[in-house]
Each structure stands twice: as structure tokens, then as C-alpha cells.
């Protein structure tokens, strides 16, 4: 129906609405049911139930606002989640490529801020095998998703990759020795390469942290070996003094 038709039929529609209003006012609870029954009578298909993103129970104003905000945020995430996927796809060259990309895309679209805590809790247990070698990259991704100033679109990609990493059942299940973590590593490297520009500063931080940690470890080692040498020298001095005393006594005898 075009705009012109709508304008032409507007008076008629208004009249129908005016006739329906008193009925609805007398029995508002049955209005929706009557409308459905009316459609059934006219032979129309019963409308399928549309799942509302909002809860069925009527929340208080504060909860409702929070729910609406969460819904809007999730829609925004879904809308902004995919711009970098082609670049990621170009970097993934392993087998099961399509399945890996499909899973990554799904994880990315479903990414939400609550996933950050989930990643924090599970990321350490993944530090093994192939993942151990790319751990600095993973650390940089984790730092980026924790940073409130980082762009959400980039964060979703990083969250998607990290969720892929901690998920035991992905394109190649993680329980398969040797191969299980190879696809995870491929995804991490692809996403890291895609977000390299944004991750630069987090890597810089990581490098600085690594230098500080290495210096601390060096301090611990220096202290430890100084102590060992000191104890050995004191022991040797004691032994030397004893040897001199025994030698003197032996010479006297």
C-alpha cells in the first residue's frame, strides 16, 4: 500500500478505530485474543510467537531501563561486530577454515562485556603446547579487552578469538593432542595480525612488564647465588681454621 492509498483510506481507518475503541475500553484483557480469533475466523494464519528481548514480567523502572540498555548494547555489538572479519579470514589458512571462521564469527557476534571475566578465569589453563609460544600475543589481547578505552568493535574480535581459545569444543576439539590447540593458535595469530596496530601499545606495556619481571628475577638469582657463595666461603673458612688447628696440634704431638 502506497502513501497515497494510505492517505485516501485514512478517514475510513480512523472511523474503524473509533468504533473499536469503546469495545476495547470495556474489556481490554480480551482485545488481543479477539483480534487473533477474528483473524482465525477470516482464515488467516495465527501469528507465530515473536520472542521479545525484554523479560515477560514487568520489571521496575530501573530494571527496565537496564534491560533496554543491555538490549540496545547487544544490538550495537551485533551491528558493529563484523567489519574486520574478511581480514581475519585472509590470515587463516589452516584446514577446517570455513568452520573456524563460522565459529569465530559466532563468538564475535555473541561477545558481551561479561565474557571478559569468563576469559580471565579460564585463560591461564590454556597456557600449554602451541599456546605457550604465542602467550605474549594472548596477553596483549587480554589487556586490550580489559581496557575501557579500546574500541568495542575491535574488542569483540579479540573476545571472539579468546572465547574460541578457551572453548574446548571448537573446529578441532582441544583434547586431541598436538592438533587440538593448533586451530586456536591460528585464530589468535590471525586476530592478532588483524588488530596489530591497536595492540601495539599493549605489547609495549607487555614488553616493559617483561623487562621489569626479568630484572626482578635477575635480582632474585643474584641474591641467591651471593648467599650460596657466602655460605660456601664461610664454611671453607671454618674448615681452613679447623685444618690449621689440627695441623698445629699434630705438629706439636
Amino acid at each position: 500500500m502506497g502513501i497515497k492509498d494510505t492517505v485516501r483510506h485514512l478517514p475510513k481507518l480512523l472511523q474503524q478505530a473509533a468504533e473499536q475503541l469503546p469495545k476495547a475500553a470495556t474489556n481490554p484483557g480480551n482485545r488481543f485474543q479477539n483480534l487473533i480469533n477474528g483473524r482465525r475466523d477470516q482464515g488467516q494464519q495465527q501469528p507465530t510467537e515473536v520472542q521479545s528481548p525484554l523479560p515477560e514480567t514487568q520489571p521496575t523502572n530501573g530494571n527496565r531501563l537496564t534491560t533496554i540498555a543491555a538490549y540496545v548494547r547487544s544490538r550495537l555489538q551485533a551491528e558493529t561486530a563484523t567489519p574486520e572479519m574478511p581480514e581475519v579470514a585472509a590470515h587463516i589458512t589452516t584446514g577446517n577454515r570455513e568452520r573456524i571462521l563460522a565459529l569465530l564469527r559466532r563468538f564475535q557476534q555473541e561477545a558481551k562485556p561479561e565474557d571478559i571475566a569468563k576469559i580471565d578465569n579460564n585463560i591461564e589453563r590454556m597456557r600449554q603446547g602451541a599456546i605457550e609460544q604465542i602467550w605474549p600475543k594472548i596477553q596483549a589481547l587480554v589487556k586490550m579487552i580489559r581496557d575501557p578505552k579500546a574500541a568495542w568493535a575491535s574488542k569483540t574480535l579479540a573476545i571472539g578469538a579468546l572465547i574460541y581459545l578457551i572453548s574446548p569444543l571448537d573446529a578441532v576439539p582441544d583434547i586431541i593432542p598436538g592438533l587440538g590447540l593448533a586451530d586456536d593458535a591460528a585464530v589468535i595469530i590471525a586476530v592478532f595480525t588483524t588488530l596489530a596496530y591497536q595492540l601495539d601499545k599493549y605489547l609495549g606495556n607487555y614488553a616493559q612488564t617483561a623487562v621489569t619481571t626479568a630484572e626482578d628475577l635477575a635480582d632474585i638469582q643474584i641474591k641467591k647465588y651471593n648467599q650460596i657463595i657466602k655460605i660456601s666461603l664461610i664454611g671453607s673458612i671454618g674448615a681452613a681454621i679447623l685444618a690449621i688447628i689440627f695441623k698445629l696440634i699434630y705438629n706439636q704431638i
Partner: peptide
């Protein structure tokens, strides 16, 4: 420089 004291003590002991 940081651990100079320890090195000095060990040197004296040696």
C-alpha cells in the same frame, strides 16, 4: 651497584 655490598662481603671472605 645494587648488590655491591654483597659482592664486597664475599670478596673479603674470599
Amino acid at each position: 651497584k645494587e648488590h655491591q655490598q654483597d659482592f664486597a662481603i664475599n670478596g673479603i671472605l674470599l
